[in-house]
Structure formats: C-alpha cells, structure tokens
Amino acid sequence: MSQYILRRLMIAIPSLLGISVVLFVVLALAPGDPFSELATNPNVPPEVQAALRAKFGLDDPIYLRYLHWITAMAHGDWGFSFVSRVDVDTLILQRLPTTLYVVGSSQLLALLIAIPVGVYAATRPYSLFDQLANTFAFIGFSLPTFFTGILFILVFSVKLDWLPFVYTSVPGSGIPWLLEMIRQAIMPVMVLGLFQAASMTRFVRSAMLDVIRLDYVTTARAKGLGQAKVIVKHVMRNAMIPVVTLIALQMPAVFGGAIVTEQIFRIPGIGSLLISSILANDTPVVMAVTFVFACLVVLFNLIADVLYGWLDPRISFR
C-alpha cells in the first residue's frame, strides 16, 4: 500500500507541472487588463496604462512569463499582485482562515444533513419522508445560491432583523466575539450547506438504494439481523464509494471558497479574492490560487483512491 501511495505521489509531480502549464496558458490567453479601470479616466492617458502593462511583463511572450513564474515558484516566491502590489502569499494567507471556517462549516453541515437523510430515505423508499426529502432536494438544486442568498437576507435580516448580512472581521476576543463570529456566519453557511446537501442527499439515497437491493443484504436480513445493524454494517460501507468520491470532489472547495456566496455576504475568503482577481486579470493571484487548488484536487483524488481500497478490499491497486 505505502509503495502504491509513494508511486502515486511521484506521478503527481509531473502531472501537476503539466496542469500548471495549461493553467498558465489559459490565464495568459484570456483577454483583459489589470488596469482597465484607468481607461476612461481623463487624468490618465492610455500610454500610462500601456506602460504599466509593459512594466509588469504582460507583453512578454507566454513561455518567458511561464519560465519566470515556475523558477520563482521553485524558490518559494509566489510573485506579487498587479492590482494591490502586495505579495500573493500574504494575500492568500489573509483570506484563508475565513474560507476554511465558512466553507468548511457549510460542507460539514451538508454532510450532517445529507448522510442521515439520504440513508433514512433509502430505507423507506417512496414513503412520505422520502417524498418530502426528495422535493426539498429538488427545490434545493433548482434554486441557485445567488437567489437563496438574497431570499435569506430578505427574510432574516430585513424582515425579522435577526442576523447581520455583511460579514466582517470583528476585532476582539472572548465569548461575545465568538458569538458574533457564529452569528454572522449562520446565513452563508446555511445557504451554501443546504445547496450542497440537496444534491448530496440525492447521491447518498441512490447509492444506498443500489446496495440495499443486492442479495447479500437480503441474506443478512434473513439471518435475522436487526434493520439498523444491516444498514450500518452491510449497506453503508458498500454505499460509501460514491459518497467518498463526492466528498473528495468537494474538499478542494474548502480552500477554493465559494465565489457566489462569498460575494453576496461579503465574506473575505479565497473565493472573493479569486473572482476579483480574475475580473481584474490579476494573473499572479489567480495562478497561485488555482495552482494550490489543483494540488488539492490531485491530493484528494489520491486519498479517495486509497479509501476505495479500504472500503472494498477487492479493489486492488498496483
């Protein structure tokens, strides 16, 4: 097993290099300008905009820019943002805790809802509970977060006046500070968590249904094992493969943030940094965030593969 993991990690290095090349080319070819805000300002003639582009190397050939980036990266230099002229790693580290907190909690919430609801619904297919769960799930993924976010704001902030909808880093410490941090995270976590939970519930239910119909489950039941025991010991373990896949797909987002939700609630996370950097064509920042994201994608794919082997020992890796 450890040999397998080691080999996969060795493969990961060239594959990440390959990904970085593609990412860089896409970003370099994507049109736009970090200084587009200057365009209509009569105080700033277009030559200034062009001179800035040239100074930051935006007019160099792509392969030169890539070589420059990769050598700097190898030395641990992430470059600096064109827009704020701040080092990229500083920017990312400033944003990371918030993203981990908000997006992490919402993923946790999604799992806490999806797994029990999905499992329970699958044990009683087409019952009232199952029907309700399905209907809510359908509503959940028919409505995009840009919509539910505003709905939540209108209900909980404007009408009821219970929760603030501008997420800000409150200075201070102690219990009141902690409570405030929780209070302002409730809405974004709910919006994002419920959206994720909706689709995940459907996947869990379907995976459970696939297994529940198999012969060995019927056998286990025939042996007189209790329902709960059958479900947990025999069905769930085998149904976990698609669920593990889904979680592995979602985990990198805990770093990458949630662009729309962060935007709506003004959460200073990686997602809002990414979107504003993309819109401003701030290539060094976009490149750094997406590259770290790519590393996480590859890593969690590997973890998922290892977990498959543990869940179903017949899956062999060589």
Partner: peptide, 8 residues
C-alpha cells in the same frame, strides 16, 4: 479529469 477540475 484533475486538470479540468482545477481549471478556473
């Protein structure tokens, strides 16, 4: 697949 997942 990993590449496409990580593309912004």
């Amino acid at each position: 697949t990993d590449l496409f997942l990580s593309l912004p």
